[in-house]
């Protein structure tokens, strides 16, 4: 009897553990998908100026390795990608999901650890651009 109880407890714990892990890895898989899609967009739209390693070029084009700056301006980043910055050209052809892809790539490369930029987050940010 006690043997059965401990067996059931063990199975229950295992199920909880697996569910938790599946949830975790689902998020991880999603982030990985966004990153892969974002890398292609980065190569096409960003890499010429910002460099393959996000290193920038002199003071002509800023690097994308400044994690502090990126974290501080997280909410403005979708607008900068879409509408351009002080000297950066806009990318009006990028859809919100593509902005999410490319920001997830930048935000999790070059030493940055910003996690995923979801479609919802990007849509909310784009709705309130200056």
């Amino acid at each position: 009897m006690t043997r059965n109880t401990s067996l059931y407890t063990g199975v229950a714990l295992l199920v909880i553990y697996l569910l938790f892990h599946a949830c975790q890895s689902e998020q991880a898989i999603r982030t990985a998908q966004y990153t892969v899609n974002g890398q292609k967009l980065f190569t096409a739209h960003c890499q010429n100026c910002h460099g393959a390693k996000g290193e920038g070029l002199g003071t002509l084009y800023p690097p994308l390795t400044d994690s502090t700056f990126l974290l501080k301006h997280r909410e403005q980043l979708p607008c900068i990608v879409k509408n351009g910055g002080s000297e950066m050209p806009p990318n009006p052809q990028l859809t919100p999901i593509e902005v999410a892809y490319v920001l997830t790539y930048i935000g999790n490369s070059f030493g940055n650890e910003m996690g995923i930029f979801t479609l919802e987050e990007v849509q909310q940010a784009l709705a309130v651009c200056d």
Partner: peptide
């Protein structure tokens, strides 16, 4: 130049 120049100049640098 928005296309190849930055990469070209980065390499020449």
């Amino acid at each position: 130049c928005p296309s190849i120049c930055p990469t070209m100049q980065r390499n020449l640098l």
